[in-house]
Each structure stands twice: as C-alpha cells, then as structure tokens.
Amino acid sequence: MSSKNNYFSLLSFIAILLSFSFLGLLLKPADTPIGVVNKVVKDVTFKSGDSDWVEAKSGLTLKDQDVIRTGTRSLALITYLDGSIIRVREKSEITIYGDKSEDKLDKNTYVDEGKVSFDVKKQSEDEEFKFTTPTMVASIRGTSGLLEVMSNLSSSLSCESGAIEVLSKLGTKQSGSIGAGETAFVDPNGNLNITQTEENKKKQMQQLKNVDTKKIRIKTENGTIEIEYIPEGK
C-alpha cells in the first residue's frame, strides 16, 4: 500500500509538473509584442499567422512570426523591445521571431530576400540577436551593418562596427567572424568568403541609415492625395 501510495504520489507530482509545463506553454502569450513598426513609407504589408496580408502602419506592434514585406521604393523601420533598430529596404521580406522570458528577448530576423540595415543594441550574456537567411546565420552582440539577400539566395553581411559571428547553412557549413570594415559573403553553395568592405558599400551603409524619402501631393476633387516614396538610388 505504502509503495502504491509512493508511486501514486510520484506520478501525481510528475503529472502536475507536466501540467504546469504545458500550461506554461499554453499560457505563453503568442501575442506578446516584441517590436513596433516605427515608420512606414509607401507599400509595406504585414502578415500575422494565417491571416491575409494587410497594410502596415506606424505604431503596428509586431509579434513572434509576423512577416513584413516592402514593395518598390518602400521602407519599414522596426524597433525591437530592446531598442535595436532594423530598416527594411525596398523589395524585401522578413519574418520576426522573438522568444521573451522575463527581461530577456532572443530575437531572430529571417530575411528571405532584400536589404536590411541594422543598429543592434548591445546584448546581454544570455540574450541573442540573430539574422538568418537562406544561406547564412549571423549572431550579433551589438553592432551596426547591412545585410543583403540576393535573388540567387547568396547573402552578404557588412559590419560597420563591433563584431559578428557568421555561419554558412549549406555545404561544409563554414564559420567565421567579421569586424568593422569587413564583409562576409555566402554564395548559394554555402561557401563563405570574408573581405574588406568596399568603399561604395560603406557609403551605401551610411545612406541607408537615412530614412530619406520624398513626398508628392496631388490635389483631387476628393481632397489631397499624399504619396511618400524613396527616391531612386536610396
């Protein structure tokens, strides 16, 4: 009897533990905000879960697995809860992943295609900020730079300050680290090549920091239509 009771107690204890664990997972708010869209220019759409694509506006809160897409000469400026900023340039698509526990927020931004410049706040020891592309994973501790995913799925990551750990997802899964003034390039076969950042790329990084737009106003019978867009070359 006694051993039965012990087994029962043990099983009950495990069941309660598991219940709480599952309950924790269930209660874990999937809608916990992990960032905010701070600025939107022209054609920016947003998708959450299984919902349809809708227009994104300034002030939109972003949650785990939300997707942002920008059209031609469009821009979305996103700020994470830790203050890290990413600027999603034209013709890009990114998915936001965030895992929040207490005062820690692990962030992963999946860049399917396009161009993203970033200013990542210094991360604490047990916190991470990652960029993932079809061919690359980059782990960032606190730095600024530019990530570009080309149509052939090759990835180029330029570091402006600080240091970034880079891992190729394909082939021999090469890894390396880049510092200020260096660029990591991963080709579609997964080959990793680290070089000095070219001057025109450096200038481009500076330019992309400016969320520089133009706006035209068209007067119609029904009022004034305002169109904001990014000038060519920006």
Partner: peptide
C-alpha cells in the same frame, strides 16, 4: 526604460506623433 520612438535626432510630424516605450529591461 527604452524609448523606441520618437527615434533619436528624428523630428516628428505634428500629425503623426507616436510614442512607444519598452519596459523589457526594468
């Protein structure tokens, strides 16, 4: 307290004032 917006050094339009704050690190 992380002030997510307005962004540093960026003027805000009178018609589109938007303030967002993060208390993640409190």
């Amino acid at each position: 307290v992380i002030i997510m917006s307005p962004l540093p050094d960026e003027p805000v339009g009178q018609d589109e004032l938007f303030i967002s704050l993060s208390l993640l690190k409190t």
